[in-house]
Amino acid sequence: MTTVHDFSASTLDGQQLPLKAFAGKVLLIVNTASACGFTPQYEQLEALQRMLGPRGFAVLGFPCNQFGGQEPGTAQEIAEFCATKYDVTFPMFGKIDVNGDNALPLFTYLKDEKPGILGSKAIKWNFTKFLVDRSGKVVARHGSATTPQALIPEIERLL
């Protein structure tokens, strides 16, 4: 059976990172953007990472420029923005597509495992969140309007 741990992705610094490195952790996988109305969610994502990280939790951020061109920067610009504006310590990956023919295979898998409203698979906007249990199984999908803070009870049950 395929799990999130069977995939890998390039980090912002260009290193290939197998997601099996996160085996045994509860994950929140998020497509991010630096110039979006939901960008302030970085603050809550980082707060979750700091609060729950020591208990086996990790946020994984995947910048995406497919929604309104809201992530136009280079990898270095994204890294600098995340570090200086939000002091992000969780892993950030290279810019990806989440929809279409060039979608990162991980996101194709996430969408297949947890379709959205009325069974739609396409991600609608930045800051869509996928919650993954310790075994790598996708257990929930939340849209952009769901704040990271609102997910604490759900994450706590998986820890």
Rank of each mutant, 00 (worst) to 15 (best):
T11D: 08
P105N: 09
A23E: 10
A75L: 03
L158K: 13
L17M: 15
L151H: 04
P18L: 01
I78L: 12
T128K: 02
A21R: 10
Q41L: 05
F67M: 15
N99Q: 09
K85G: 00
F22N: 05
K121V: 09
W125A: 11
K114W: 08
R157M: 09
K137S: 14
N126L: 13
G24A: 06
T3C: 02
P40I: 07
Q66H: 11
M1V: 15
G61K: 11
A103G: 09
Q66T: 12
Q41K: 10
Q49P: 00
K25G: 07
T108K: 15
V98G: 04
F38I: 13
V132R: 07
C36Q: 09
R134Y: 01
A47Q: 14
N31W: 07
M51C: 06
G100T: 08
R141V: 04
V138R: 09
V139W: 00
L106N: 07
A75C: 01
D6A: 15
G69P: 00
Y109D: 11
Q41T: 04
V30L: 06
Q16G: 00
F93A: 10
G69D: 01
G14F: 05
T84V: 14
F62Y: 14
D87N: 15
M1Q: 15
A9Y: 08
A83D: 14
R141N: 01
T128W: 01
L48A: 02
F38S: 15
V88S: 05
P91G: 06
K114H: 11
K111E: 01
G53F: 05
T89M: 02
G94T: 06
M92V: 13
Q49K: 11
D6L: 06
V132S: 04
K20F: 01
K25V: 03
I152M: 13
L151F: 03
I117S: 10
D101Y: 04
G69H: 05
A150L: 01
F67I: 15
G94I: 03
M92C: 09
A23H: 08
R50N: 12
L17C: 08
